[in-house]
Design a protein around this nucleic acid. Structure first.
Lengths: 190, 190
DNA sequence: GCAGGTTTGCTAGCAGTGCTAGGATAAAGA
DNA sequence: TCTTTATCCTAGCACTGCTAGCAAACCTGC
């Protein structure tokens, strides 16, 4: 009984090790460096072990995405609750979102640009995902006026996402980032 | 003299064939289907021929991107010039942009999401690129007010881009697309 | 018309990818 | 102690982008 319990526990630990290692490797060297061989070497197991935990590389990335969403949700929440009023809360959340995308680009890409097999805008979405989006919604809520809250939040989110992705692969000049961010927020502040 | 001219011409034609075939293949089966072997078979030449025209696969994609930008610029221009007033022109350009991204998703991805080796937000950017962005700028111009035109256009563009990319890989519910688009445009119409 | 040199495009192969079948090895239960 | 079961690794498949080196076709000067 206890032996089996230990094995289950060790298995769970190894699964976390895989996900954590994949995230760290992606953040330090980019997703191109995260090959199944490299990842296996990093956790000091052979390749097929990965496939006894996950269906494939995409499933590993999906697990990383969930971890990342939890992190982002926490950062957005901190930014929002520290702000003194709704206007500044929206600005703070927008800035926190941008900072997250800048600081952890590989993680951000996995979360929102790579095609990953996870339910997003549905009730079946993982809690961490809904939590992150919920933080954005809370920030938009006081300023929504007559507009539909959900849709408005999605639109604001899209603006942030567009800013970050277009800048990150050279489509926008980096110098004007702050100005663009301010412009976007001003357009959603009333 | 004339013989060499013919050879140069034939070479140029083949180069166009490569780019066109790559674009068509991507549009019909996605970029994953555009392997160098497949592309070579499609143009009925061997693989190394591709490398006598382009430095690598990325360079082929870059050429497709330029083609795509020219197409998009034309469609945006048509939408803008057909509109009766600035407000509706912005809405028309936004809708045309969204329609382009919806209709030719693979091409759109190559243009704005894939990391492709092309100068974008610089004076050295290919004319077609600047032209497409210029159409957006023209649409934003009458409604810019005191805001910096270039930066405001970039921000509006980011909004459109975010909407399309997040929707296209399942992060946003498709049903609410029109509402989101209308919301975005309303926020940039005054 | 014919040798010489150049251009052109092919076959074959390299190092890498995600993923999997099969057998060896270790641990568990009788 | 012996058998069964779970665990994990080695080796390999089919694919990727890319390239070295050779064969054939071509143009040129005689």
């Amino acid at each position: 009984m206890s032996i089996q319990a230990r094995r289950v526990r060790e298995r769970a630990e190894r699964e976390r090790l895989i996900v954590t290692t994949a995230r760290e490797l992606a953040e330090s060297e980019g997703w191109d460096a995260v090959t199944t061989r490299r990842l296996a070497a990093e956790i000091e197991y052979s390749q097929p072990v990965l496939y006894s935990h996950f269906k494939g590389k995409d499933a590993i990335m999906a697990a990383v995405v969930v971890e990342g969403c939890a992190d982002m949700a926490a950062e957005l929440r901190a930014a929002r609750t520290a702000a003194p009023d709704p206007q500044r809360a929206l600005a703070a959340v927008g800035a926190a979102y941008a900072a997250f995308a800048e600081r952890r680009p590989a993680l951000y890409d996995a979360m929102f640009t790579h095609a990953v097999d996870l339910p997003f805008a549905t009730p079946e979405a993982p809690p961490a995902l809904k939590e992150a989006f919920g933080e954005l919604r809370e920030a938009v809520l006081p300023l929504a006026g007559d507009d539909n809250l959900e849709t408005l939040t999605e639109t604001f989110w899209s603006g942030l996402h567009g800013l970050m992705t277009l800048m990150r692969n050279g489509r926008l000049r980096r110098e004007d980032h702050d100005e663009r961010l301010a412009l976007l927020i001003s357009r959603f502040s009333g």
